[in-house]
Nucleic acid binder design. Structure first.
Length: 280
DNA sequence: CTTATTCCCTGATTGC
DNA sequence: TGCAATCAGGGAATAA
């Protein structure tokens, strides 16, 4: 599913291709459902027609398309959303819910099998995502910041990693992967992590996100990049979606449980429930 | 303020 | 083989 690396992949792919392009028309499928809360398909098309893209930015899992005039169209791909740049003559993409025609004859196709994705038109792009936590790949995000986000919390560490108010952009895949690399059990109380564990986790979060961006994201399920290409990070998964398969570090079968309502994968040996001893 | 639960959606998978 | 139940999960809403 699209997490920070998948959204960043799309941003990089599309930025150069939509910059300066004017929206000629926006067409939605026949469902009558708009991905924009509070705006129907026709209203949304009216609001976007004639506007130009200035740049694309990202905040956590949100893709922000800055428009001329100072406002922005904010996309969230949720589970199955993709934004793909195509020519009209390219073969159809399955589950295309909307098409944005551009003034150079190309188009952006919004595909979203499960229709969870959202568009949000805002006049205040700087505050497009209120309450969201720090960007984990930013130079300004320190070990101390992570420590402060975890301090005193009794919730499982994985639940805190998934909480977008604490850290922006981690989802189920990269939470599991970061914890495996750090050797930390996903059900450990967040506030119980030692300084050494917090340092390891800070490092592995950044490592796994950076690698995933290099590999253009994980495409085991639905994600494709802005040109329709698959990523290859799924080949590097060490925990996520590997139930019963051998841990790449120690060979122990990867276990599966449920944390914060999400399927959770970990190595019972490398990620012990109690120890603070090293791993990763 | 906190943590836990439900719901949205639809194709894939599982169970009988 | 067929059909129903379950599963996948980000985040908003709701509950406690």
């Amino acid at each position: 599913m699209p997490e920070l690396p998948e959204v960043e992949t799309t941003r990089r792919d599309l930025e150069v291709r939509v910059r300066g392009r004017r929206i000629v028309e926006v067409c939605f499928d026949q469902s009558g459902v708009s991905p924009a809360r509070g705006l129907g398909p026709l209203e949304l098309a009216d609001a976007l027609r004639g506007r130009s893209f200035e740049r694309l930015s990202r905040r956590g899992k949100y893709l922000i398309a800055h428009l001329d005039g100072g406002d922005a169209l904010v996309f969230h791909r949720r589970m199955t959303g993709n934004l793909i740049h195509r020519r009209p003559t390219d073969p159809p993409d399955p589950f295309t819910r909307a098409t944005i025609a551009l003034d150079d004859g190309s188009e952006l196709r919004w595909t979203d099998m499960r229709r969870f994705g959202t568009w949000d038109l805002t006049s205040d792009p700087e505050n497009a995502v209120p309450g969201i936590g720090p960007e984990p790949l930013s130079d300004e995000w320190t070990v101390d910041d992570l420590g402060a986000a975890l301090a005193g919390r009794t919730a499982p560490i994985k639940a805190v990693l998934l909480d977008q108010r604490r850290i922006a952009g981690l989802g189920n895949i990269y939470a599991d992967e970061s914890l495996h690399l750090a050797g930390i059990h996903p059900e450990r109380a967040a506030g119980s992590l030692s300084r050494d564990e917090i340092e390891r986790l800070h490092r592995t979060i950044r490592e796994v996100l950076a690698l995933a961006i290099d590999l253009q994201g994980s495409s085991a399920q639905h994600h494709v990049g802005g040109l329709g290409q698959r990523g290859s990070m799924q080949d590097e998964w060490r925990a996520y979606h590997r139930t019963g398969e051998p841990c790449r570090t120690c060979g122990t079968a990867i276990a599966r449980t449920r944390v914060a309502g999400r399927g959770t994968h970990f190595c019972p040996r490398c990620q012990p429930a109690t120890s603070t001893a090293s791993a990763g």
